[in-house]
């Protein structure tokens, strides 16, 4: 079951002097949902463009379904990647896109596409250039879901989508994934909303893969210890501290990897343990020193919304 459909080794992409992807290596296994997470400009879209043959690698090797995707019709037929900033011909309406998509995707399900159009309330006869940002995202999401491509990329699929539409997207994705398993690479920075969907997490930051881990393991890889400052300090002394906050005599410290025995010990001393959300973990890992205070505020805003 561990056959990998994507193998990347030492992949580098430079735009002039700027290195967008820096010596990246990873594999993607069949029929899993991957989260490609990272901050704006981290290299998520560039990496997906490389995987879909839309950009040419500067160096390194890249195999998708056993071959380089560049100009490889056999490989490209099995992929679907509608960019977040996808352009459409000037006069196109959503019905043109949905009518032509089946010619390019062998597994296209027109009934499913029609159902998604209803779900997202997409006006089929309105020119695409007059659609709102959310409706534009919906066009891409519908194509990507209904394409049932063996390797489907979602690039910030919920940009501009309202809460109802986002929920519909998650529900339909999971339903359809259960019936028609395929490999999905979901790129986003709304990590908490998708964290339950993801089976594997790839975190990219400044062109490098920072985390390449099973989502379940990653969630268990850190815990937050809350309690009286003195107790907490005593407990976390010598451990790998990821972040620390405190108010008055209380402290909350996120530490990496606690064993069951250590958890029991912590509870015995009156400390509270809580799991760390994927988003907090990733924010903490990808926060560079200069942006620390900023990121913390953003986390709060995100938490409040979800």
């Amino acid at each position: 079951m561990t056959d990998s459909i994507v193998r990347v080794a030492g992949l580098t992409k430079k735009f002039g002097a700027f290195t967008a992807i820096d010596d990246v290596s990873f594999t993607v296994e069949r029929n899993k949902i991957y989260g490609l997470l990272g901050r704006n400009g981290a290299g998520k879209t560039t990496l997906m463009q490389l995987l879909t043959g839309q950009q040419f690698a500067t160096s390194g090797t890249l195999e998708v379904f056993g071959a380089s995707p560049v100009e490889n019709a056999r490989v490209l037929q099995s992929l679907c990647f509608i960019k977040e900033s996808q352009k459409y011909p000037d006069s196109f309406r959503p019905d043109h896109v949905l009518a032509s998509a089946p010619w390019f995707f062998a597994h296209w399900d027109a009934a499913f596409a029609a159902r998604l159009v209803d779900d997202f309330r997409l006006p089929l006869n309105r020119p695409i250039k007059k659609l709102s940002r959310g409706q534009l995202s919906a066009v891409g999401v519908i194509v990507e879901l209904a394409s049932r491509a063996p390797l489907t990329f979602f690039d910030e699929p919920y940009l501009g989508l309202d809460a109802v539409a986002r929920q519909i997207f998650y529900d339909r994705l999971l339903e359809d994934y259960a019936e028609h398993p395929r490999t999905i690479i979901l790129s986003t920075h709304l990590i908490d909303e998708v964290s339950n969907l993801l089976e594997h997490v790839l975190v990219i930051d400044e062109g490098r893969i920072l985390i390449d881990q099973d989502a379940e393991q990653l969630r268990g890889s850190a815990s937050t210890v809350v309690g009286k400052k003195t107790d907490v300090d005593a407990f976390v002394a010598g451990r790998d501290i990821i972040s620390r906050t405190g108010i008055g005599g209380l402290a909350s410290v996120t530490v990496a990897g606690l064993s069951a025995a250590e958890r029991a010990a912590a509870r015995a001393t009156g400390l509270e343990l809580s799991p760390v959300s994927l988003q907090q973990l990733i924010v903490q890992r990808t926060t560079s020193d200069t942006a620390e205070s900023e990121t913390v505020t953003t986390t709060d805003a995100w938490s409040a919304r979800s």
């Binding site: 879909t52 043959g53 839309q54 100009e71 490889n72 019709a73 490209l76 037929q77 099995s78 992929l79 679907c80 990647f81 509608i82 960019k83 996808q86 352009k87 459409y88 011909p89 000037d90 196109f92 896109v97 032509s100 998509a101 390019f104 995707f105 194509v143 491509a149």
Partner: peptide, 16 residues
Amino acid sequence: QAISFGFPLALGFGVT
């Protein structure tokens, strides 16, 4: 326009 708008869509549809 076939190049500037049609080409990106074709790429998204997996056309070489």
